[in-house]
């Protein structure tokens, strides 16, 4: 991921850019309603499902770790919140509990990975399976609808013409972006991901920073579970799990279009929007629904692959 020659980077940038441009021009011509404001808002709302956890995942990946369990934690947080609402517990308390659950499970991940030094993949596959199971154990794998006005409000209200879910996406982006790119802590995340020993020698509290990055992930999970509850008018089993690949791809998409070839929050957001935009645009353009995924898949993959050529270990073999 780190070794890439500079001269190639700019060429890759052109490829990405031209794919972007061609796709958007095609969609605009083939789907007249695409540029309609409401439609663009729909794109952003569907991007929110992917972008918010992807920003959290980016933060975790910055420090050289990984997380797969978020798909389960989103479901678990949602289902617990919905059960609490059913039990007529006041909304603020429900929200607080949701946040607490999301963050504390991520901190368990962090403990296993940082303190016990277990491989992040193995750890989070385990917690993913456990939380996915627990989620369905609580919901008995049924759909649960929500009757509370708070979540309906998020879905149907807007502020200055922009739906609240989009505002949530914007706010989370601003928070995570400023945290990662504008503060010392964010820079230290990058330092740890780039060279842990250097970071340690420079006196950075590596373990604490890693815990913090998982905390950010927990926060993002909590927010996106609110969006899920609001937009789906309730809880759908394993809803987040179906977006797992898109989330991971958005992060890599962002990484591949960044100048230094590293994970960035802006890049991740662009990646998520690109994926959502493709799905929406192609549907509007009349591409039959089951081929959309395929076209979408190919385009995203072409962008990611062309941009990450030479990202593997085997680059060492270049003479």
């Amino acid at each position: 991921m780190k070794k890439i020659s500079i001269s190639k980077t700019s060429k890759k940038g052109y490829i990405t850019f031209s794919i972007f441009a061609v796709v958007i021009v095609y969609i605009i011509f083939a789907a007249p309603g695409f540029l309609h404001f409401d439609n663009l808002m729909n794109v952003l709302i569907s991007a929110a499902f992917v972008a918010i956890p992807a920003m959290g995942l980016s933060t975790v990946m910055l420090t050289g770790s990984f997380d797969l369990s978020f798909v389960g934690i989103i479901g678990l947080t949602s289902v617990i919140m919905i059960r609490m609402i059913e039990a007529a517990i006041p909304i603020p308390l429900v929200l607080l509990c949701g946040l607490g659950i999301a963050i504390s499970i991520e901190l368990i991940n962090a403990f296993l990975i940082v303190k016990l030094k277990i491989h992040p993949w193995l750890t989070t596959i385990a917690t993913m399976l456990a939380t996915l199971g627990l989620e369905k154990a609580i919901s008995k794998a049924y759909f649960l609808t929500i009757s509370d006005g708070f979540f309906g409000g998020i879905r149907f209200n807007s502020f200055i013409g922009i739906p609240l879910s989009v505002w949530i996406l914007i706010i989370v982006f601003v928070i995570v972006y400023s945290f990662v790119h504008k503060t010392i802590i964010g820079l230290h995340f990058y330092a740890i991901g780039g060279n842990e020993i250097t970071a340690k020698k420079a006196g950075i509290k590596v373990d604490l920073m890693r815990f913090l990055s998982f905390g950010v992930m927990g926060f993002c999970i909590w927010v996106v579970s609110l969006v899920y509850l609001a937009q789906l008018s309730g809880y759908t089993p394993e809803a987040a799990y179906t977006n797992l690949n898109e989330v991971i791809l958005s992060v890599f998409f962002g990484m591949s279009i960044s100048k230094r070839n590293i994970v960035t929050i802006t890049g991740t957001l662009i990646g998520a929007i690109f994926v959502a935009l493709l799905a929406n645009g192609l549907a509007l353009a009349g591409v039959s629904s089951y081929w959309i995924k395929l076209v979408e898949g190919f385009l995203v993959v072409i962008v990611v692959i062309t941009n990450s050529l030479g990202s593997g270990e085997l680059v060492q073999l270049e003479k």
Binding site: K2, L187, A191, G194, N195, A199, A202, G203
Partner: peptide, 20 residues
Amino acid sequence: NDLVGYFSVAESVMLNNEPA
């Protein structure tokens, strides 16, 4: 090598001593 490859010179020099 005791540096972060994708950092700029300034980021490396000022690591954990950043003006803020």
